[in-house]
Amino acid sequence: MIVLYIFLLIHLEGYNRCVIIQDKMSIDVPFKHPSFLMHQDKIQCQTQRQEMLRCGTSNVYVKPECVCSFHNVYEATLYHKYSSCPHGEESDVVTKLKCPDCKKYSLNNNGPCINGGKLTCNGDEVAPHITCECPPNYQGKFCEEKLENVTRRCDKISAFSAIGMINCDLTKSDCVTYSRTGKYVYLCKETETSQDRQGLPLCIDTEDITVSPDVRTRTSASTTDSNQLDDIISGVQSTTPTPAVIVFLVTLQLCFSNAIMLNLFDIH
């Protein structure tokens, strides 16, 4: 009966653990800075292929990966204080390239767009103001921002303990969240990685799935029959089971079986 009491008490008071799911944004660039951007030597960017961007009136042309690529445009003011062309022949200053030219002088004619983004030219906007059409779960000017869901496990606390803490709707650090009407309060620890949900409910929904079975009062433990136990277990099983629920059910069943065996032994 003690096990039964604890089991029912937990369900009457709600889940002790639940989860929240938040959006996480991070910069996702699937490649390192090109080496030619890290030093002044631009010889590796130069070629004699005439379909490339020509350096003034010289016979030197600039490779597309050295003209309108992501890092060239995303950090243009940092790296484009100098040119990939020979001294005095400046024709590849990316901050002055118009969108159609940026498209032409870039790898796969896709300009600075990354992560599956597609270059869209609205006119003659210069390279730093180009925008890209991003695939799902990406955003940003050049689709460099990745969006993903992060699952955070949270533990039940008292309302008193939550005083002064920030709501999880406003922060991704340590915070508190609530069930639908604020009946239960949960503390969520800060995490950068998604945690295993482990079958736990959403914190906001914990009021909707707690159990309130009809427990009939008995004068003694020995008068509890199997029909009452089946009614209680049936009411619990009508909710979404969790590992904790399953353990309690098994324990309860074993306790009940042991009680029957002891009664039979006492009779004989």
Rank of each mutant, 00 (worst) to 15 (best):
I27Y: 08
A159P: 02
V215W: 10
E133K: 08
I10Q: 00
R49V: 12
S179N: 12
L202G: 05
P86F: 02
P64Q: 01
V126Y: 05
R153I: 13
G235N: 15
I204P: 04
L147F: 11
K81E: 02
V3E: 03
I232T: 05
T120F: 05
C203M: 07
V126C: 02
R197M: 11
V73P: 03
S257N: 14
V29L: 11
E148T: 12
V62F: 07
D225V: 05
H80T: 00
C85H: 09
F70L: 14
T177S: 11
E13M: 10
D208L: 07
S179E: 08
G116W: 10
N72V: 07
P64D: 07
D101C: 00
P213C: 06
C66Y: 05
Y61F: 15
I114A: 09
H87N: 14
Y5I: 10
P135L: 13
D155I: 10
L107G: 00
T181S: 07
K104L: 10
K42A: 12
E89V: 11
N72K: 06
K42L: 08
K98E: 15
C134N: 02
Q228S: 12
N72P: 00
F31C: 09
Q195S: 11
D124N: 14
K63E: 06
P136A: 00
T242A: 10
S84K: 02
C113A: 01
G111L: 03
P100Y: 03
S58F: 03
D214H: 02
N110P: 06
S234Q: 08
C132Q: 09
I233L: 15
V150K: 15
S194F: 07
Y74G: 07
M1L: 05
K183F: 04
L262N: 05
D101K: 13
T171Y: 01
K32G: 09
D92L: 08
T242E: 02
I130T: 04
L107S: 10
A127G: 11
N59L: 11
Q253D: 07
M1K: 07
K189Y: 03
F70D: 00
L202I: 09
N227I: 10
I204W: 04
E144R: 09
I157R: 07
L53T: 01
E207F: 04
H80N: 15
S194V: 01
D92C: 08
S83K: 10
H87F: 09
A76Q: 03
H11E: 01
D266P: 01
T224W: 11
L229A: 07
E190W: 04
C203S: 04
N263K: 15
N16M: 07
T239D: 02
G164K: 12
V247W: 01
